[in-house]
Computed example of a mutant assay.
Amino acid sequence: MNFKTNRKITTGLATILAVGIVQTAPVFATELGISDANYSLEALIEAARNEPPIVVVDATGKIKVMATNFSELYGIEATGVKLGGQEQELILQREYEAGNVKHDVFNMSNLPSITTQILPQGSGVSWMPSDLKDTTPAIYQSPAITSLNPWVWSYNTEKYGETCPISNIWQLTDAEWKGRVSIPDPLLRNETMFWFNQMETHDDDVMAAAYLDHFGKNLPANVDSATSEWVKLFAANNPNVTRKDSDVGPVVGSPGLKDPHIGFVSAAIFRVKYGYNMGICSGMKPYAGQLTPRVAVIATGTDSPNAAKLFVHYMMSGVGMGPQLIDGKMATNINTVMPAEEGSGVAKFVDELHVTHSDTTDQDFARLQYWQDLWTIHSR
Rank of each mutant, 00 (worst) to 15 (best):
E176D: 14
K178N: 12
K178T: 01
G179V: 00
S182Q: 08
I183Q: 04
P184L: 08
P184V: 08
P186K: 07
P186E: 11
L187N: 15
L187Q: 15
L188K: 14
L188I: 03
R189T: 11
R189P: 01
R189H: 15
N190H: 09
N190A: 13
E191L: 06
M193H: 13
F194I: 01
W195R: 00
F196W: 03
F196M: 09
M199L: 14
M199V: 10
T201W: 10
H202Y: 12
D203M: 05
D203Y: 09
D203P: 01
D205T: 12
D205I: 05
V206R: 14
A208Q: 03
A209K: 11
Y211A: 01
Y211T: 01
Y211H: 06
L212G: 02
L212V: 10
D213K: 12
H214V: 01
H214D: 06
F215I: 04
G216M: 05
K217D: 15
P220I: 05
A221Q: 13
A221T: 12
A221E: 15
N222D: 15
V223P: 13
D224M: 04
T227K: 02
S228I: 00
E229S: 12
E229N: 14
W230Q: 12
V231A: 10
L233Y: 14
L233M: 15
F234P: 09
F234L: 07
F234D: 09
N238W: 10
P239R: 05
T242Q: 09
K244W: 13
K244R: 11
D245R: 03
S246V: 07
D247S: 13
V248E: 05
V248H: 08
P250C: 01
V252E: 04
V252N: 05
V252H: 06
G253C: 04
P255R: 02
P255Q: 04
G256R: 00
K258L: 13
H261C: 07
G263C: 13
G263F: 14
V265K: 02
V265I: 15
S266D: 06
A267K: 01
F270Q: 01
F270T: 00
R271F: 03
R271V: 01
R271P: 03
V272F: 09
V272N: 11
K273M: 05
G275A: 05
Y276N: 03
M278I: 04
M278L: 02
M278W: 09
G279I: 04
G279C: 05
I280F: 01
I280Q: 02
C281K: 04
C281V: 04
C281E: 06
C281A: 11
S282P: 09
G283I: 00
Y287F: 15
A288K: 01
G289C: 05
G289R: 02
Q290S: 11
L291S: 07
L291C: 05
L291W: 08
L291I: 02
A296W: 12
